[in-house]
Design a protein around this nucleic acid. Structure first.
Lengths: 206, 206, 206, 206
DNA sequence: GATGAATGAGTATTCATTCAT
DNA sequence: GATGAATGAATACTCATTCAT
């Protein structure tokens, strides 16, 4: 059934085209600030075609959400699998955050996005449940990893600290871009912050 | 003229009523997701009446922004004025964050809000400039305070760390509320996080 | 009853103030393009006060209409009363048109206004009837006068020609102002036009 | 591609339907007195559909303006091309006015419309410039034609007289319709008026 | 598969008018 | 008398979605 397979592949390619356009627009203008007309224009299709590939604007949106969550899952699982000393692994995790932020800012923004109170107000209850499940899974991976790193069951707390800090720093930079303030922390300063944090988390000796 | 004064007071009260309704809705659904109809319904006025007190939906929005920024300014200045040992002052600042978050979550959300890339896309250039100015002032107060606390000019970096962490933690909790995950960190865990941070910032001796 | 009389006088004065403001705005922007807010602002009263002196925006409008029609009636009756040779009287009438256009353009515009198909669409049937009655009276005075001037019962036709020409010329100038075309006919050219017309109406000998 | 051509034709037909409805309403109630709802109802389409064919209410309006101006241009050029004796040509022109008024009163009203002070207040500066240009062209054709007819360079003045008279007569009839006065001048009386005018313009001998 | 055409429900804002003081 | 406050109805225009082809 080569024909059917090719059709399937083509269908997925088209969906990708649409998602690429939508992702950019949703990130820049938010859900309500983005129109199907804009999405259609950006991917050079008619508005009607969008609805052939997705049931609704909302489905396009949740597709992007799942895509982002899955991206994180894959990265975290890869790190989890590596064998390393605690301090090194902590640094590895931190660097992973850094890397995603640089190479895939859209997936980074996603995390901040999901944290906003209004984030899921347009999403159906079923979808919401699924998003919750998958996001929780991601957090659990990090918490387990950090349990191991700090050598006790405070992993959950440390995960909170580490993750919040990074999330906060990202937002801070976003805010400074908005507010046209000089961008801080720089790459070097980020390193300093990590050292401070690591000292706090693991003690001076590490 | 008692009459005129009473009128003025009543007018301010009405504006407050509108702002209270609008604040809640904007926080929950964002600017584009909130309609003047919703605001009017929430404060039990007609839509037209909104426009008697504010020139536009945008003016309502920016009024809320300024209100929040000013609230922070006042609190920060109060702390800045207190004479204290570094470690104690650090704790004071941390507690201030905590207190606002508990007593005025709406002003807390504001900070996260301002960080979003699309946050100010509906705001006129003049207003944007003013928001930038006042927000920057708030950050400067914190940076200066922390310079003094850590005893060197790394205040800016420390301010970044402290503030990002707290901002991140807030978002984390928001995210967990959204995602219906059990709420962490708890009050006690927050204390632990602060200890870790303080150790990282000031060294073990403090 | 001096008090009551003074009150009456004051009331009329206020009405005049309002009408002055309204006249200017209606002429410039039309009925639908003029708002009660604008009228109130122009005469430095509150919108509500307008409704103390007039029942509605429509009543303000029809008041202006009657005012204008009456102004014409008075002028025409004055000319009618003068004893003169036909050609001189024709010129007198023409000059009267000219004078009103220069000194009271608002009353001149009125005539053009009344001629427009949509002119009275906002006016109640009773008011419309009254306007029709009084306008017809004005036309009758002119027709009778011209019967006498041309010495036969073709006055009605001549009145039509004379009046249409003048009305048309006024509109022509209005159109040229709108279209920023050089203004023609000039005062001198108007005289030439009158000569042509008079020759046509009365024959070469006059 | 027959399909594409048919689509194009259908699209033009729909635009025409909308313009027909709009023309009637604008003539009767003016720009501000006509709503998109009314237009939509009149041509049995939804309001939204109007905006699929035209960018704005204003674009509908200016489309009508251009349509009318072009109609005049075509007729005038046709007459200009005919070789005739002066008096005959003058009559030809007069009859052309008459014909348009009878067969296309909407294009006749247009001229009166353009003359109103507020006529173009809703039109963009670019459009206004274009309207001015094209209207001026029409007048120039008439002035040149009349220069030739009267045999000297007084064409401009004669054009003013002729055109104003006709414009005025149209308005007069409009006014009488409004005011429910018996309609004058009749067809026969119009002829008499023309004779008077022609005598005035060309002298008794013609 | 893809799209031009069509629309019901909504969007911020304005308007003439009313009413309590 | 005068006005600040309030509003129902309307206004031009937009949006996500549907459907015939």
């Amino acid at each position: 059934m080569g024909v059917q397979e090719r059709r399937e592949r083509e269908r997925e390619a088209r969906k990708s085209t649409i998602l690429d356009a939508a992702r950019e627009l949703f990130l820049e203008h938010g859900f309500n600030g983005t129109t199907t007309k804009q999405i259609a224009a950006k991917c050079e299709l008619s508005e009607a075609t969008l609805f052939f590939y997705f049931q609704s604007k909302n489905e396009i949106f949740t597709s992007l959400l799942f895509e982002g969550i899955d991206f994180w899952t894959q990265g975290l699982k890869k790190i989890d699998a590596i064998k390393m000393k605690p301090r090194a692994k902590l640094e590895e995790l931190w660097n992973f955050y850094d890397q995603i932020r640089e190479e895939h800012p859209e997936y980074y923004q996603l995390s901040a996005f999901l944290a906003r109170p209004m984030a899921l107000s347009n999403v159906s209850e079923e979808m919401k449940a699924e998003i919750i499940r998958r996001s929780g899974e991601n957090f659990q991976i990090q918490a387990d990893m950090l349990d191991e790193i700090v050598g006790n069951s405070e992993g959950r707390i440390v995960a909170d600290l580490l993750w919040s800090t990074y999330l906060g720093l990202t937002l801070l930079q976003g805010s400074r871009t908005n507010l046209k303030t000089p961008l801080h922390p720089t790459k070097k300063e980020l390193k300093t912050i990590f050292e401070m944090l690591a000292r706090g988390l693991l003690g001076d000796s590490n």
